[in-house]
């Protein structure tokens, strides 16, 4: 994935504040350099931030209702790809490119009660949920497991949740608190968990064992439902006798339009079926919602607004 494609339509923000939460966790607050409001976001959303050599995803910790700033908290990972170290080097006044907030961890509107389970730095989206719940007058309970002296955002959580916050700094007390909460939730409760993979797996496994249905279980997947930029390829157009190069991050439809080869289109999202083109040679990488599985398998048609190529070259009847 190229960073530029992911950050397309993103925002250029300024670091307003850097605060140490714990020895290894730092909160960074971004604002619009012109002082304007920022787009609202769904609680539990994340930002893609370009920093150092890479692009990393961080959960926003605000409620998202009418933000004047975006705040993230970053754990310095010694073994990481270097993104977290670069984030920790940010200072007030630095400019960064961030994506628009993306939602992948939405609180359920129908929930009567939110049971939030956070492990370590996984507290960040849970804090966002807790804030939104408080703003909308919804009940939330949190179990927060952290290593001694490594609890980020603890004062805010105590104030937000009061007796509905259970803090655990060792496995034993966490297991006990979890078992107690999992077996005492009224119907209508939804569970959200975020933390290290093994932590999330064990929480989900305990919940399932106690009869929690999948519908009520929500865990943070950073995978974005959006299409990635894809690999570059070449299209040979047999009727017009030209070749078109399609770089990563540019759709086949856009590249064809750039070469003055018009293809009827409508949704540009792979659902309407308008932009189909006949494939004469090569294997398309189908990414649309329009073609049936059989049609996709035959490889003879493709939706050029979203689909790409598995081969370096496709021959198209255009």
């Amino acid at each position: 994935m190229t960073a530029t494609a992911l950050l397309a339509g993103g925002l250029k923000l300024q670091v307003a504040e850097v605060t140490a939460q714990t020895p290894s966790i730092t909160s960074i607050t971004f604002t619009d350099p012109a002082g304007g409001p920022l787009p609202a976001y769904v609680p539990g959303s994340h930002l893609l931030v370009q920093c150092g050599d890479g692009v990393n995803a961080y959960s926003l910790t605000g409620s998202g209702r009418s933000p004047s700033d975006y705040s993230v908290s970053v754990l310095r990972v010694a073994s990481g790809a270097g993104g977290s170290a670069a984030m920790h080097r940010l200072r007030a006044g630095d400019r960064v490119l961030v994506s628009r907030p993306r939602s992948a961890f939405t609180p359920m509107a129908t929930a009567r009660h939110h049971l939030l389970i956070a492990g370590g730095i996984g507290v960040t989206p849970m804090l966002s949920h807790a804030r939104a719940a408080a703003e909308w007058g919804m009940a939330a309970t949190m179990i927060y497991m952290y290593r001694p002296a490594e609890g980020a955002h603890v004062p805010e959580l105590r104030e937000l949740l009061d007796t509905r916050l259970v803090e655990c700094t060792d496995r034993g007390s966490f297991r006990q608190a979890l078992a107690e909460k999992l077996s005492s939730q009224r119907l209508g409760t939804h569970l959200y968990v975020c933390g290290p993979a093994a932590f999330m797996e064990s929480v989900l496994a305990s919940a399932r064992e106690l009869g929690w249905p999948e519908t009520r279980l929500h865990s943070e997947p950073f995978g974005t439902p959006e299409l990635d930029a894809g690999q570059p390829f070449r299209a040979k157009l047999t009727r017009s006798g030209i070749q078109v190069e399609i770089p990563a991050g540019v759709s086949l439809l856009e590249a064809l339009e750039g070469a003055d080869v018009g293809v009827p289109n409508m949704c540009r999202k792979g659902v309407c079926g308008e932009c189909s083109v006949a494939v004469l040679r090569g294997t398309p990488q189908h990414r649309d919602l329009y073609l049936s599985e059989d049609q996709k398998a035959s490889g003879r048609t493709m939706m050029c607004c979203v689909s790409r190529s598995l081969d370096q070259e496709l021959e198209l009847d255009l």
């Binding site: 959303s45 628009r100 999202k269 049936s292």
Partner: peptide, 20 residues
């Protein structure tokens, strides 16, 4: 014709702020 299931899939994938 799967028109409505496709439309629902499309709508469920919309990101905040997208308008169609």
């Amino acid at each position: 014709e799967q028109i409505i299931t496709r439309a629902q899939q499309f709508l469920m994938n919309l990101q905040p702020g997208e308008k169609y």
